[in-house]
C-alpha cells in the first residue's frame, strides 16, 4: 500500500488524491500526501475533520494553484528514499516539502536504526517541519498555514 501511494504520485504525475487547506485564502496549495507510517492516520483525521479538503478538480494539478506541497508523513527508510525523491521530482511548478512528524523530521524513534533516513531534509529541501509523534491534525493545519504565511511574505 505504501509503494502504491508512492507509485501513484511518482509514476502518474497526476495524483488523484490532492487536498486543499480549509481556510487558507492567501495562497492556494495542493497537498500530496506521502503517507508512510502512523502519521498518515493523522492526515486522514485532518481530512475527515474537514481541515484538509479533497480537491474536486480531479486528477492533475488544477489551474490557479500557486504551489504543490509534498507532505511526507511517516518513516522514510533508505530503501524507500528514492521513491520519495521521485515523487518530489514529479511535481511541476512551485513546490514545497512539509516534514510531518518525528520520523520525517529526524528519524525520531528510529534515530539509531541503520535502515532509516535521519530526516527527509537529507533528501530534499524542507520548507516546514511539524513536530509530534504523531502530530495532531490541528498541528498539520498549523504547519500548512505557517507555510502559506512564509511563502506569501517571501
Amino acid at each position: 500500500m505504501i509503494s502504491l501511494a508512492l507509485m501513484e504520485v511518482a509514476e502518474r504525475r497526476t495524483p488523484e488524491r490532492a487536498y486543499r487547506v480549509a481556510g487558507a485564502p492567501a495562497l492556494r496549495i495542493v497537498v500530496l500526501d506521502v503517507g508512510l507510517a502512523c502519521c498518515a492516520l493523522e492526515v486522514g483525521a485532518a481530512i475527515t475533520a474537514g481541515l484538509l479538503v479533497p480537491d474536486v478538480a480531479g486528477p492533475g494539478v488544477p489551474k490557479g494553484i500557486d504551489a504543490t506541497v509534498l507532505l511526507i508523513s511517516g518513516t522514510v527508510t533508505d530503501a524507500l528514499a528514492p521513491g520519495v525523491l521521485r515523487a518530489w521530482d514529479a511535481i511541476d511548478g512551485a513546490r514545497h516539502a512539509v516534514s510531518f512528524g518525528a520520523c520525517a523530521n529526524t528519524g525520531g524513534p528510529y534515530w539509531d536504526a541503520p535502515t532509516v533516513t535521519k530526516g527527509i531534509d537529507q533528501l530534499l529541501p524542507v520548507t516546514v517541519y511539524v513536530p509530534g509523534c504523531p502530530p495532531r491534525p490541528e498541528a498539520l493545519i498549523a504547519g500548512l498555514l505557517r507555510l502559506v504565511d512564509e511563502t506569501a511574505t517571501a
Binding site: 523530521n105 524542507v126 516546514v128 517541519y129 511539524v130 513536530p131 498541528a139 498549523a142
Partner: peptide, 12 residues
Amino acid sequence: GFDHAASSAGGL
C-alpha cells in the same frame, strides 16, 4: 499546545 511548526530542524 500544537502550533509549533518551524522552518528549520533547529527551530524545533
